Amino acid sequence: MQRLPFATQRLPSRAVISVAGEGAKEFLQNLVTADIDTLEPGQATYSALLQPQGKILFDFFILAENGRYAIDCSKAQKADLLKRLSFYKLRAKVSLSDSDEDVGIAPVKPANGLSYTDPRAAQLGARLIARKGDLPQGDAEAYRGGRIRLGIADTDEDIGSGELFPHEANLDQLGAVSFKKGCFIGQEVVSRMEHRGTARNRIVPVYSPKGSAAKGSVVTADGKTIGTVLSSSDRDALALIRLDRLKDAVGAQEGLLTEAGPIYVRKPGWARFDVALPKDDE
């Protein structure tokens, strides 16, 4: 397995929230989509906090430590996430705090320090949590481009808040949703989508050979909209695609178009869902 070619660096778009106290595990277990009950110190999971209606409010990583859980989240969403967690705290024996730490990335997990292998895809290397100022600045485009080619969505660029269901952002594929644990916020809706197979939209990687497809560009087949472009890096991009309409387009041998020209859908190597591709692309 080949890892992405990027240097150890700080991710300025990320921040850390600390959840501590004797009730921290139970508090998080009853709220978030992932099962954190068996996380040992040094282990991490990808997870999310949903609306009661099932859409993603916040996606993040939870790292278990001795004495706390560190939440690696979007810096832009940190204040709102902390407020939402505080809303659910009630009488729980838990303390919530804005941790003054930086989040970074490294090609491989270092021997020392607070780090964990990215639970979504090992090719993304390790994620680091360090004291403010300890991580170097860097050019994150190599990492970002690799993330997009792997089909991994980003909180700020692709997922947002209150817009997508977990299945649409592939959280069910990336270990962020447990269908075996007890209840969590939005669980009924997400479980129904899983068991009925009603997730029609998925974020998938796409390739635009004639130029970069701009964020928000409409993806069409025979003049009919089947998706929208999200983040892009050169000619690679992520797009939210209606898979049933993609299947119809492939069956009718209709090409996909954006304002930048033709676009080709790819199936991520980690995906367990079906993606209709022309025979030449399979």
Rank of each mutant, 00 (worst) to 15 (best):
E65T: 03
K89S: 14
E65H: 06
D59S: 06
A76S: 04
V94Y: 02
F87W: 00
A64Y: 03
I62W: 08
Y88L: 07
L81M: 01
V94C: 01
D72E: 10
E65R: 12
A64W: 07
D100G: 08
Y69Q: 02
L96H: 02
S99N: 07
S97G: 06
V94S: 09
K75Q: 15
A92E: 08
R84I: 04
D98Y: 01
K83D: 09
D72N: 07
I71R: 06
S97Q: 07
Q77F: 15
Y69R: 10
G104A: 15
S86P: 13
D59Y: 04
E101F: 13
G104R: 06
K83L: 14
F87G: 04
F87V: 00
E101A: 09
D59W: 02
I105E: 11
D102G: 09
K89R: 12
S74E: 03
D59F: 03
L81N: 09
I71A: 08
F87T: 07
K89I: 04
S86T: 11
S99Y: 04
A79F: 03
I71E: 08
I62C: 13
F61L: 15
D98M: 09
E65I: 05
Q77D: 15
K75A: 13
N66P: 12
A70S: 13
A76K: 09
R91M: 12
K89E: 04
A79E: 06
F87D: 08
K89V: 07
K78M: 15
K89Y: 12
A92S: 14
R68G: 02
L96S: 04
L85K: 00
K83R: 12
I105A: 14
L90H: 08
I105Y: 14
D98K: 04
A79P: 11
S86E: 12
R91G: 00
L82R: 05
D102L: 14
E65W: 08
C73S: 00
A76T: 01
K78Y: 13
G67A: 03
E65F: 04
D59I: 03
I62R: 14
A70D: 12
V94R: 03
G104Q: 12
Y88E: 02
S99W: 03
A79H: 12
L82P: 12
F61C: 14
K75P: 10
S97D: 00
V94P: 05
S95G: 06
D80C: 02
L63Q: 13
V103R: 11
D59Q: 09
R68P: 03
L96T: 00
Y88F: 00
A76Q: 14
L81Q: 02
C73M: 04
D102I: 04
G104S: 11
D98C: 11
K78Q: 14
A76D: 10
A64C: 12
A92C: 10
F87C: 01
D80L: 07
L85W: 00
